[in-house]
Amino acid sequence: MSDAAATLTQDRQKLEMSALSAPAVIFTVAMIAFPVVYTIWLGFQTFSSTGKQSFAGLANYSKLISDYEFWHGLWVTVALFVLSLVLQLVFGVWLALVLFHAKRLPGIVRSLFISPFMMPPVVAGMMWLVILDPSLGAANYILQSFGLPPSDWLASPTWVIPTVALIDSWQWTPYVALIVLGGLQSLPPSVYEAAQIDGASPFKTFQRITLPLLLPTIVTAAILRSVDLLRFFDIIYITTQGGPGNASNTLNIYGFRVGFEFFNIGYASALMLTLTAIVFGAVLAFNRLRGAVAWS
């Protein structure tokens, strides 16, 4: 076969392969693109309380600027994000180290520790709602049995954000730990052997070797959790519905209520697209950070 004929055959094969995979590619792209494009279009519409629709231009976005609930929701979202992420990263690394060094029944210990994140968030929310009930819950019973004052937990405007952050951290810290554990297991043993020969203490070893080498893994875990934390919804919806007052009204909860309870789908779409932009921004920032801390 001549070179020209062989090239022609190769081109034809490529064309056939493209044609065969095209339906799947088109379907996948359409499934991703359609909801996004539709939401962008909805963001330029206004819906009256009776569902009547009309073109609004940028009115929904300009309304965001003067909407107190939007800025409050953004503050609540960021506060929950920062508090939960810090808790989950700190305790996730600690838990990973515990699991890494667990010598007895490591399989059982790991299964036990990672079980919370296998629980559906709705179930976790219901469980904690019962435990933290100020009148009937076990949490106050335990506090009082140690002579401590009871707390209103989820019913306190002051404590609701830390309490929700604790619930989410209870559930998702094991997930961070699992990612970090994978990073720990891939670290080169030769570095530790060298540190041991140099007489480095366990703390110095952790501070100077383990933590720097783990940073790219920790940042990866932070990216994965950030996406979820900025879209915080299920646990709040189950436990407080944004209350008391609007103390735990995240952007996601606010957008949901505007769309599905007050039927203003246009403004809800603008809210959700703004939240999506914030999530993208956070992911991009963490990606840059990951590049900066990657091993050379």
């Binding site: 100020p134 009937l136 009871p150 209350g243």
Partner: peptide, 21 residues
């Protein structure tokens, strides 16, 4: 009212009353 009443709807009220509290 009970502590945390700002989160009370029918489920919590019924549970509290039924339990005798």
């Amino acid at each position: 009212g009970p502590p945390g009443v700002v989160n009370y709807s029918f489920q919590q009220i019924s549970a509290l009353y039924r339990s005798g509290r």
